[in-house]
Amino acid sequence: MSSDFSVYALPDEHRAVREAVRAICTDKVAPAAASVDEEARYPQEAHDALLAADFYAPHVPEEYGGAGADALATVIVIEEVARADASASLIPAVNKLGSLPIQLGGSEELKQKYLGALARGEGGFSYCLSEPDAGSDAANQKTRAVRDGDDWVLNGVKRWISNAGVSEYYTVLATTDPEKGSRGGISAFVVEKSDEGVSFGAPEKKLGIKGSPTCEVYLDNVRIPGDRIIGAEGEGFEIAMRTLDHTRITIAAQAVGIAQGALDYALGYAKEREQFGKPIADFQGLQFLLADMGMRVEAARQLTYAAAARSERHEDDVTFFGASAKCFASDVAMQVTTDAVQVLGGYGYTREYPVERMMRDAKITQIYEGTNQVQRIVAARQLLAGVQSDL
């Protein structure tokens, strides 16, 4: 029996993507990361650099003017940006989250119009699912969409919307038939920032990812054309859940990048910091800590890449792998960044060093796009249903 071990090697084209993104991040993203966090401002430097290099929304297919990056390449882009600045990594990540419903269920006209606009950098794309009473209970949609002639009229409030106010376009989930609920009663729509009746709340004051604005989105009698529905009426919740199966993998990638950035800094510090006459990296106790950090990061990366491959192929087990990768990688990010602070000791607890920021940024990866408690429920249900592949 012969074996092709190249299956475990990253293809050359993906290595090239990593090198290109890393160079951009070293030059443009990382130098601004501390000020972006300190000032809680949108990372415009990263935005401009990623857009110029076609990494702003790399997932958009070539036929709509995009780079046509596959799921693994997109994961690598997000991972590398997060390694430098987690806030900046939400630019390509949120653009995929917001626009993927159109790719999965939108009409050709919607794809041409909005994916093309996204690829050209005419505006980012946000995802409006969560509401004040619809967090983990995502089916509990209070936002309503009512037919009026050929149009739809939307009313409601969306909460915890990443890049709200910056993005030009929004995928909005709304109830169209209250009696059916999630089984055919929820639909998805494209809302534009410029639509009359759209407004935004003040940015949330957050623990981390301060450079990515998180706001409420208010829909007050927002009238949109009938052709802005994504898919058929009543298909919205299914499209939303399918979207999350794929985009949870991008959060896993973000978590891997944050963890890798923290590990990189901790390793460099341990080699330079001396105590008792020698570098602290020479002490076995610290070596054990660093070894565990490295093993966890690599395990999370491998699971994330495996999930990305399944996403690209639309495998039946992508729900299990998406939930598992997101859950495992985000737990790793929290553990590794906390350990990185420990490696630096008192210095790690100050804002003069980036691991403090990385630890704060890591926490959200355990929460958004479904808490890790929800991810474990999803993964368990998939296992019990016998969906998990053995390859």
Results as ranks from 00 to 15, higher is better:
E233L: 00
G234S: 07
E235M: 00
E235Y: 01
G236W: 02
F237W: 05
I239T: 11
M241S: 13
R242H: 09
T243L: 02
T243Y: 02
L244Q: 04
D245T: 03
H246F: 14
H246L: 15
H246D: 12
H246W: 08
T247L: 00
I249S: 06
I251Y: 04
I251E: 03
A253P: 03
Q254R: 09
A255Y: 08
V256N: 03
G257C: 12
G257S: 11
G257D: 12
I258Y: 10
I258S: 13
A259Y: 05
Q260M: 14
G261S: 01
G261M: 06
A262F: 06
L263K: 01
L263F: 11
L263E: 11
L263W: 04
D264W: 03
D264I: 01
Y265S: 02
L267R: 13
L267C: 09
G268W: 06
G268L: 06
Y269M: 06
Y269S: 05
A270M: 10
A270F: 07
E272A: 15
E272N: 13
R273F: 15
R273M: 13
R273Y: 14
E274K: 15
Q275W: 12
Q275N: 06
K278G: 01
I280E: 08
I280N: 07
A281H: 11
D282Q: 11
Q284I: 11
L286Q: 04
L286S: 03
Q287W: 00
L290N: 01
L290D: 03
L290F: 03
A291T: 15
M293P: 01
G294Y: 05
G294N: 08
M295W: 06
R296Y: 03
A299R: 12
A300G: 12
R301S: 04
T304R: 08
T304K: 10
Y305M: 07
A307Q: 07
A307H: 05
A307F: 06
A309M: 09
A309E: 15
R310M: 04
S311D: 12
R313S: 15
R313T: 14
R313E: 14
H314N: 15
D317M: 04
V318H: 02
G322H: 02
G322M: 01
A323M: 05
S324D: 03
S324M: 14
A325C: 09
A325L: 10
K326G: 11
C327S: 12
C327I: 01
F328L: 13
F328A: 07
A329D: 02
D331H: 11
V332K: 03
V332H: 00
A333R: 02
M334S: 14
M334D: 12
Q335C: 00
Q335L: 07
V336K: 09
T338S: 14
A340D: 07
V341F: 08
Q342D: 06
G346W: 02
G346K: 11
Y347T: 08
G348C: 05
G348Q: 07
G348D: 05
Y349Q: 15
T350M: 11
R351S: 13
V355Q: 10
V355M: 07
V355F: 02
R357S: 12
R360W: 10
D361H: 10
D361V: 12
A362E: 09
A362R: 09
A362N: 07
K363S: 05
I364V: 15
T365Q: 06
T365R: 00
Y368Q: 09
Y368T: 08
